[in-house]
Simulated assay, not measured.
Amino acid sequence: MAEIKQVSTANSNRRNFLWILFQWILQVFFAFWLRYQSRGKEHLPVEGGGLMISNHQSFLDPLLIGLPLTRPVSFMARDSLFRIPILGCFLRREFVIPISRKAASSQSFRAAIQNIENGNFVGIFPEGTRSDDGTVQRFKPGFLALLKRTECAIYPIGVAGAFRALPRGAYFLRLKPVRVVFGKPISAELIKQYCDRGAEKELLELTRQCVIECQQQAEEWINPVRTN
Score class of each variant (00 low, 15 high):
Glu202Met: 12
Ile124Cys: 09
Ala218Ser: 02
Met1Tyr: 03
Gly66Glu: 06
Gln23Pro: 00
Gly66Ile: 07
Ile191Lys: 02
Arg164Gln: 14
Lys5Leu: 11
Phe90Ile: 15
Ile84Glu: 12
Tyr171Asp: 12
Lys148Ser: 15
Ser74Val: 00
Lys184Glu: 15
Met76Tyr: 03
Pro177Leu: 06
Gln114His: 13
Phe22Met: 13
Arg138Cys: 10
Met76Thr: 05
Pro224Gln: 06
Ser12Lys: 06
Ile124Val: 15
Phe125Trp: 01
Ile186Arg: 00
Glu47Ala: 13
Gln217Asn: 11
Asn118Trp: 01
Ser58Ile: 07
Phe121Trp: 13
Gln6Cys: 02
Asn11Ile: 00
Gly198Thr: 11
Pro141Gln: 08
Ser108Arg: 01
Tyr194Glu: 14
Asp133Glu: 09
Ala2Pro: 15
Pro126Gly: 10
Thr135Val: 13
Phe139Glu: 03
Gln23Ile: 01
Cys152Trp: 00
Ser8Glu: 08
Gln6Asn: 14
Glu127Ile: 08
Ser8Cys: 00
Ile25His: 05
Leu51Gly: 08
Gly88Tyr: 03
Phe32Ile: 14
Tyr155Thr: 04
Glu117Gln: 12
Val178Met: 11
Thr9Tyr: 08
Leu64Thr: 05
Leu81Gln: 05
Trp19Val: 14
Gly49Ala: 05
Ile84Val: 15
Val46Met: 08
Glu127Leu: 10
Ala160Met: 07
Val211Gln: 07
Thr150Phe: 05
Leu173His: 07
Glu202Cys: 08
Lys184His: 10
Ser187Ala: 04
Arg35Gln: 15
Met76Val: 12
Asp61Cys: 13
Gln217Leu: 13
Ile116Cys: 04
Gly50Ile: 00
Ser74Ile: 00
Arg92Asn: 13
Leu67Asp: 09
Ser8Lys: 11
Val211Cys: 05
Gly128Asn: 09
Ile113Leu: 09
Gln114Leu: 12
Asp79Val: 01
Leu21Thr: 11
